[in-house]
Design a protein around this nucleic acid. Sequence first.
DNA 1: CGTAATGTTGACTCTCATCAAGTTCTGTGG
DNA 2: CCACAGAACTTGATGAGAGTCAACATTACG
Lengths: 221, 221
Amino acid sequence: MLLRTNTPSSRPVDGHLAALAGERVFCSEFRYRRGTEVFGEGEETEYVYQIIAGAVRTYKLLSDGRRQINSFHLPGDMFGLENGAVHRFTAEAVVETRVRITRRRSLLETMQGRESGASSFLGLVTRNLQHAENHMLLLGRKTALERVAAFLLELDERLGHPRILVLPMSRRDIADYLGLTLETVSRACSTLRGQKMLKFEGATQRQIVLLDRKGLAEYDA
Amino acid sequence: MLLRTNTPSSRPVDGHLAALAGERVFCSEFRYRRGTEVFGEGEETEYVYQIIAGAVRTYKLLSDGRRQINSFHLPGDMFGLENGAVHRFTAEAVVETRVRITRRRSLLETMQGRESGASSFLGLVTRNLQHAENHMLLLGRKTALERVAAFLLELDERLGHPRILVLPMSRRDIADYLGLTLETVSRACSTLRGQKMLKFEGATQRQIVLLDRKGLAEYDA
DNA sequence: CGTAATGTTGACTCTCATCAAGTTCTGTGG
DNA sequence: CCACAGAACTTGATGAGAGTCAACATTACG
């Protein structure tokens, strides 16, 4: 959507982001191995990212290691574009992830030219805010089962209701997104399976078929 | 800050907001009794508000009545300015509250003229987002005591570290903001008092003196 | 194919919610 | 200004939902 218009050419690059810093590339493709940090909390907001394939988690940590994942970013999603000079959270690749990278400055310059630029930026921030508002309701007031049901429906929605929902993230990631423990997430999935709301497809527990979206939605009070 | 520049004149008006709808006032003052709704979830975003005195809570409800308060707005704060056509949550006066009201349209028009306008708007949304990000960490991962300590420090900070912290909101409001019950909030306050981190001033439990801000900050892991 | 990572399940614990009683505070009317 | 009623707050007893600890199963991956 947004970045796509500012992408005259893209060439694959290997190595860490720092390798890009000295170059004058306008926009290029990049690859992160699973678990790799894309940027850290407090780092300068020098680049803007769009996912081509894979998934990214953004999170905050407490001093003793407790983690809260703000959001998962999926193919097509943009992230890392913030108003301030430094990132307010950390971004990591959940799985092997390909990303399109643009310099923040050049993006903002391009934006200033077009009238739609500023409003695209605003729309992006607003969408994030809206998601955060809904997530606060979930974290503050929903039960474990409601949270997991809401999570599955959110992902299903964002992936366009595929027959098989392929989760890129682990139970621990889901737990840290939903404010639960991985055991509780696992139990909730088992409960929902017992209620015939979902089933696991194939060998792995990362592939889920939603059998009863309406039933799941009822949990999502 | 923002609205102040767009306030050629203001006159006090009584009665409900609807009374304003037909009028051609550019900006005026308004009063809400405690517990009164300023706007509801789903209503059109026709006005923008700035608090002169009092306090406002914004919240979302689940179908069975569970409530999550997103934020409290205090004197000087703006609220109700959203990107979309309808409000995503409800706003209510916590106590008797005086508010400055502007038509959204006229504010946005004024903004378009100035270069600073769009960035003020963006700054507002960004601050809200930043607050929401921190609050998700609190709701997802902090203990009851940590939440209450964080709440007191947040309010203390926003009110400019007064000797006496006067809470405009009830224990229930605090609970619904922190994702707890009112009993748990009450107990946490008692615990902190037992630890000499705070004391109640005068007759009421709404007036708190923070005796050990450093100690409270340590809870805020 | 074997080892490490991930996921499930069970037993038990603990924090916070619920229920309930009593106290304190506030606002209103006499 | 005081008395009263309702709201707000505190505190205690108990319970439930989710966390912790642990064992085991399954899957992924070199």
